[in-house]
Design a protein around this nucleic acid. Structure first.
Lengths: 106, 106
DNA sequence: ATGTTATTTGGTAATATAAGCAAACAAGCA
DNA sequence: TGCTTGTTTGCTTATATTACCAAATAACAT
């Protein structure tokens, strides 16, 4: 095992882990449409402030989103724009998986 | 919360979870160079057959890799080609994160 | 001052993931 | 038959993640 390569893979895994959660993917997809404040997410997702805030800080710490405080509110927006193409790759995979499943029943 | 959107995000999360592990990212990156048999991974990673086989089956079940049995050996190759661009997006994020950390000490 | 918006910490409890080991099982090769 | 290569299951142990609740703290607005 080449330690340097494995370490790099580990760093990449940390970022992917930040994204690999139903709620956080949903957040990123909502942010792809435009910035949102925390209160909007609280309403949209239906969890309490504490939970929503934790999810957002995980995305922030991974460098995937950025923060802008304006007035009383805190707005989050997408920082890593390439995430959009990223998620469309995942959609391609999901479609491909579904097609294979369907072809098993023909 | 819109249930249909959340369900889709959940499906995407399942695929990302399959990838969000140091060893499995390393495997995908090795497969990006070309196919490899299980025995090669066992030597490369240094875990036993059981562990390596489990990781590969997680990638296979997520639809990220495909299998080709030839002779005594089982060869794995990358199925979702878009994963390459995928991982380069992650690298961009890592570099960006490092630059921000560095600028904090100037 | 008071209310709104948000973050962070601490605690509990449930669930998920991971690694290693052992062993059973299967397929191809000599 | 025996060897190599894999897969799968069962088991144990350790660690991580998640959700929720409560409470302290902070910034801004009225």
């Amino acid at each position: 095992m080449k330690d340097t390569n494995m370490a790099l893979s580990g760093a990449k895994a940390e970022i992917l882990k930040a994204l690999a959660h139903q709620t956080r993917i949903y957040m990123v997809e909502e942010l792809a449409k435009g910035e949102k404040c925390v209160c909007e997410f609280v309403e949209l997702i239906g969890s309490d402030f504490s939970t929503v805030s934790k999810h957002l800080s995980i995305l922030k710490n991974a460098g995937l989103v950025q923060v802008d405080k304006r007035g009383q509110k805190v707005f989050y927006s997408l920082k890593a724009i390439c995430l959009t193409g990223f998620l469309s790759c995942i959609e391609t995979i999901i479609k491909s998986n579904l097609e294979e499943q369907n072809s098993m029943f023909k």
